[in-house]
Design a protein around this nucleic acid. Structure first.
Lengths: 334, 334
DNA sequence: CAAATAGTGTCTATAAGACACTATACT
DNA sequence: AGTATAGTGTCTTATAGACACTATTTG
């Protein structure tokens, strides 16, 4: 809207002017909010998906989402609403322990065969939540392990990653997408789709889906997602991997009180690899404001032995300083 | 769109179902692309702005932007088009040296008094470009020094930063916004507006606009921007400050060949502070792929004396490893 | 010549990782 | 008992920053 009027004064292209002046005079794009909700179940990362009842992509799994209610709600609220509807949790209940942030917007004209739809994607970090009330919705809804998804390991041109999340306007570190290339140096006409720029993680890796990263890549023949949702989920995972490096958000996957081992399990699940227990322990406790001791101790030791671990809760830091950097992978930048 | 059909089977709220089922049956939101184009002029950071000709906010400066052409262009393309139109440069010409990435989307219902508009904001890094062809557009267009803008140093509730960029899905480091709080831990209903989550910079600083950061904060009475564009520009600056930490994008502000001193000037302008020349020099040359020597030497030494500097061009790295971290500011996290 | 800059050398503090070791608790 | 885990200590290496210094060029 803004800045529209400046067009069309003393210009020859009146037609074009009209087109952009009154939105109602022309076809419009639809706006939806889609949510990539992540949680940890049995030390595996899961994403909330719904099964589509009708075409297009009938029977396929897709991200929960829906139209933004014009004039009624902000994007953030729309995302929260979608998430609440899908998880079956009240907008307040257990849902207030969920972290929700904007991921990026996707708006290629042909991403939905029915019409031009711009989806504003959100990323959610949730503690282990109950199964979504599948019966309520037409088809099914479930938490699916992310490593069972086909996220299209099929290389993305590093110079033209499509459109969507960029290492966005938040405080962050380079994400996988950044590592893969992003829009750097490209002319304005380089991307094929709209993509938020990833901006979360600092570990470089310009190779699309190289070996070296253990779990979070696409398996031989995983679950296909509807629309461009595989891309959105891939971007979300990039963001998540990056985000837990420099924020305490890994704690959002856990209960209010947790042990350092449980926290380490979050990192291992999200990053996909083993971490050195001893060094991780010291590191976590050394970052100011990351966790604070409750003074209590776990009821029992590990299931396979070991002393009872001390309990912690999230500290008051909003950023980790210094950050917990991902271990260098082979597939480093350049 | 996606996942809409799953609603409304065996549900009591048929009305609501209808509302979200067929987008054409209800009021829609408009989608625009706004661009925050940054460039360096005389060692100061400037942003491209246009002056509004009519209400609302007539006479105020605003970001260049316009409607996304339904069914015709992706978000990335729309942003590139807006930028090209405004700078007067062809979509290819000098514009192919411009870096363009998605920043985030802003969609509070009341951000435009006329209707519900979702703006997908983009961030551009440009080398010194000619003045925009002001005559063409109704009112004016110009490069304005960012430190002359009123970006509302008026504290943002660290717990409720509004809606827009989050340290997005790209590879990044925590940005100022991350440092200020972001959506961490907040329930889904916490934000007042939609904001991409910043994800770019790692230096923590939870204080809204604390002392310590020299230049890039709001002056006593700077230029007011239309709509929520001050917020968008603030988010863009956060992203930019963060982005040059872990990517070689600072070179996008310079000509093809540049000296280390010129590169340092970019960092100083964007971060707002002096950097140690010697350490910066060594650091830049030590990061693999950041810059590569051309073998040539500058024609003349500095205007105030000194040897002729060697010339470099951007290297092939897409991420800096290790990153060039911003010097710790007092206003550190916690 | 004076002053400012380009570029290098050196030292110190911090942080990450490898490794070793103890103490505890489960089966 | 055997084994796995919680948590700590120590050493090595990489990096950031402070500081010093030389060489080169402009006014």
């Amino acid at each position: 809207m803004e800045g529209t009027e400046r067009r069309g004064s003393g210009r020859p292209d009146e037609a074009e002017w009209l087109a952009s002046y009154d939105p109602r005079a022309f076809e419009r794009v639809a706006v939806t909010c889609d949510v990539v909700a992540l949680t940890l179940r049995e030390s595996r990362l899961h994403v909330l998906l719904v099964r589509r009842g009708g075409p297009p992509f009938a029977g396929d799994w897709a991200l929960p989402g829906g139209f933004v209610r014009a004039g009624q709600e902000s994007l953030d609220r729309a995302a929260a609403r979608e998430l609440a509807e899908e998880t079956g949790l009240g907008t307040d209940t257990a849902l207030d322990r969920v972290h929700l942030e904007q991921l990026g917007s996707y708006g290629t004209p042909d991403r939905d065969p029915r019409m031009h739809v711009v989806s504003v994607a959100y990323l959610a970090f949730a503690p282990d939540l109950p199964d979504p009330r599948a019966g309520t919705d037409a088809v099914a809804a479930a938490w699916i392990p992310v490593d069972e998804l086909d996220l299209g390991g099929t290389a993305v041109d590093p110079a033209d990653p499509g459109e969507a999340p960029q290492p966005s306007g938040g405080v962050g570190r380079p994400t996988e997408r950044d590592r893969r290339g992003g829009t750097h140096g490209g002319g304005p006409a380089r991307r094929s789709a709209d993509s938020p720029t990833p901006a979360d993680s600092p570990t470089p890796a310009d190779v699309p889906v190289p070996t070296g990263v253990p779990a979070p890549t696409a398996p031989p023949s995983g679950i296909r997602l509807a629309f461009d949702h595989a891309r959105i989920v891939a971007d979300a995972l990039d963001r998540a991997r990056s985000k837990i490096e420099y924020t305490p958000l890994a704690t959002a996957f856990l209960a209010e009180e947790f042990t350092v081992s449980e926290l380490r399990a979050v990192y291992e699940a999200v990053w996909g690899g083993k971490l050195h227990a001893g060094n991780f322990h010291r590191k976590v406790l050394s970052v100011p404001g990351f966790v604070e001791s409750t003074g209590a101790t776990a009821e029992r030791g590990g299931s396979r032995g070991g002393p009872r671990a001390r309990l912690y809760r999230a500290g008051d830091a909003r950023l980790l300083h210094p950050a917990l950097l991902r271990p260098d992978r082979e597939d480093d930048v350049r």
